[in-house]
């Protein structure tokens, strides 16, 4: 036992035996979103309520378009995993499976739709 490090002895002994990967993915996306959120509020939020032409012109600016694309991509990814963690806590059995699948469908369809719309405006 003296040849094993404390970490090596602990690996695999957790009740779930897995799951840290998802925590790490949420950490990565949360750091990205922590940077993106103020940029999004600064660059995109002022456009809510603006005229049609203003909005079309605004999204052809590269910086704003990239911020928006990243917000859609990482936001929905973060949301899908976060919602899944919540559903795993509160929903059980078949209901849990249907809700998680449904949530992933909504998040990914919305993300793809958002990116499509953004590309059509920006390009």
């Amino acid at each position: 036992m003296h040849f094993l490090s404390a970490r090596k002895r602990a690996v695999g002994l957790g009740a779930a035996r897995s799951g840290t990967e998802r925590h790490w993915i949420m950490t990565i996306s949360s750091v990205a979103l922590a940077v993106l959120t103020p940029l999004f509020v600064w660059q995109v939020a002022p456009l809510f309520g603006a005229s049609f032409d203003t909005v079309l012109t605004a999204f052809s600016a590269p910086f704003r378009a990239v911020i928006t694309g990243l917000m859609i991509l990482l936001g929905f990814h973060h949301l899908a995993i976060g919602a899944r963690i919540m559903l795993e806590d509160y929903a059980h059995g078949e209901t849990r499976k249907f809700l998680i699948i449904g949530m992933y469908v909504i998040c990914f369809v919305a993300a793809a739709t958002g990116l499509f719309a953004l590309a059509r405006i920006a390009l």
Binding site: F48, F52, V55, L56, F59, T68, I72, G75, F76, L79, G82, A83, M86, I106, C107, A110, T113, G114, F116, A117, L118, R120, I121
Partner: peptide, 26 residues
């Protein structure tokens, strides 16, 4: 975090409308 799904869907609707037509945007 979970309630923001509604906000994000609303944003996608608004963006899609802007890419579709002035009527949809209105």
């Amino acid at each position: 975090g979970n309630a923001l799904l509604i906000s994000f869907l609303l944003f996608v609707w608004w963006l899609l409308a802007a890419s579709t037509s002035p009527e949809a945007f209105d």
